[in-house]
C-alpha cells in the first residue's frame, strides 16, 4: 500500500514512513468508494436532470400551483420558480437527498461484513469516522449545489429574469432577486448538514442501510407535521425542518433574519448531538463478528 507516501513529502523516497496514515488517507479511500457507487452517481445525475424537467412542466401548466408559497408567481418571474421548488423540496426531497449516502455509509460496512477488513488497515476508528462523516457531508453539499444551481438556472432560462414580487408586495429588481434566491438556497446548508448527521447516527446505530436512508425522511415528515400544529410555536423552533423555512424573512421589505439565526443554532445543536452519538456508538462497538 502506498497510501501514506503522498500524504506528507518525505526527504528520501526510500525512507520508511513511521507515521500512521491519518484522516486524509482514510478520506481519500472513502471518496474513491463513494465515486465507484452507482447510487451516488445516479443521485447527482437526478439532481441535475429533474429541476429543468419540473420547471418546464410547471411553466407549461395553465394553472399555477398557488397552494405553495410563490406558486402563483411562477409565470410572472423566473425567480419564483426556484423559491417554489425550495418550498417543495423542504418537505421531503432535501431530507432524502441528505440521507441517501449518509444513511448508508456506515451501515454498508455491516451489510457487506467489511468492518473487520477495514479496521485491520492501519487507521483508527476515529479516522474512519471522520473520513466517512466528511465524505457524506461533502457529497451532500455537492448534491445541494447541483440541485440548487440547476433549479435557479432552469427558472431563469425557461421563464426569464423578470423582477420578483417580494413577501411585502414590493418589487425586487432582477439582480437583487438572484442574490436573494441564491442566499435562500444557501440557508439550507446548515439544516442539510443536520439531516446528514442524523442519517449518519441512524446508519451507525441501526447497521441497516434501508433504515438509515428511510428513517431521516420519516423523521422529517413527523417534524413537518409537528411544526404545522397551531400552538407549538416554541416546539417548532427546535425542529430540524424549521430552518428550511427561515428564508421567508429575506424577502420582506424590511428583511428579518431572527429565524435564520435560530435555525443556524438549532441545526448546529442537532449536528453536534447526532455526530457525538454516532462517534461514541462506533467507538464503543464490539466489532468481532463478520
Amino acid at each position: 500500500m502506498t497510501i501514506t507516501a503522498t500524504t506528507t513529502p518525505q526527504p528520501t523516497a526510500t525512507a520508511p514512513d513511521k507515521r500512521r496514515p491519518g484522516v486524509g488517507a482514510a478520506l481519500r479511500w472513502e471518496i474513491v468508494k463513494l465515486a465507484a457507487q452507482i447510487r451516488s452517481r445516479a443521485l447527482l445525475a437526478v439532481a441535475l436532470i429533474i429541476p429543468p424537467i419540473v420547471v418546464a412542466v410547471l411553466n407549461g401548466q395553465q394553472q399555477p400551483p398557488s397552494d405553495t408559497i410563490y406558486g402563483r408567481h411562477v409565470h410572472d418571474s423566473g425567480y419564483a420558480m426556484p423559491l417554489l421548488m425550495l418550498a417543495w423540496a423542504a418537505q421531503w426531497v432535501l431530507p432524502l437527498l441528505a440521507a441517501v449516502v449518509a444513511g448508508d455509509i456506515f451501515a454498508a460496512e455491516d451489510q457487506h461484513g467489511t468492518w473487520k477488513t477495514l479496521l485491520t488497515r492501519s487507521v483508527s476508528r476515529t479516522h474512519i469516522f471522520w473520513a466517512k462523516t466528511l465524505t457524506a457531508i461533502g457529497y451532500n453539499l455537492l448534491v445541494l449545489v447541483v440541485f440548487a444551481g440547476g433549479t435557479i438556472a432552469a427558472g431563469m432560462l425557461i421563464v426569464g429574469t423578470q423582477p420578483l414580487t417580494g413577501l411585502t408586495g414590493q418589487a425586487i429588481a432582477s439582480g437583487t432577486a438572484l442574490r436573494l434566491v441564491v442566499t435562500a438556497w444557501a440557508t439550507t446548508i446548515a439544516p442539510i448538514i443536520g439531516f446528514t448527521a442524523l442519517a449518519l447516527l441512524l446508519s451507525v446505530r441501526t447497521r441497516n442501510p434501508a433504515f438509515g436512508i428511510a428513517a431521516p425522511v420519516v423523521i422529517g415528515f413527523v417534524m413537518q407535521l409537528l411544526g404545522s400544529v397551531t400552538g407549538l410555536d416554541l416546539t417548532r423552533k427546535f425542529l430540524l425542518t424549521t430552518p428550511l423555512e427561515a428564508w421567508h424573512g429575506l424577502f420582506a421589505q424590511h428583511p428579518f433574519t431572527g429565524p435564520l439565526a435560530t435555525g443556524l443554532a438549532v441545526s448546529a445543536g442537532w449536528t453536534i448531538i447526532c455526530l457525538a452519538g454516532a462517534y461514541l456508538s462506533l467507538r464503543r462497538r464490539d466489532i468481532t463478528g463478520g
Binding site: T168, G231, T235
Partner: peptide, 27 residues
C-alpha cells in the same frame, strides 16, 4: 415537546398580522 408546548407563546399575533398586511396590500 410537552415542556416547549407549555412554555411557548404565540409568534403570530393580531398586531403582527395587521402590520404586515397593510403595507403588503398597499404595495
Amino acid at each position: 415537546i410537552t415542556a416547549t408546548a407549555a412554555a411557548g407563546h404565540f409568534d403570530i399575533t393580531k398586531t403582527g398580522l395587521e402590520r404586515a398586511l397593510g403595507p403588503t396590500f398597499a404595495n
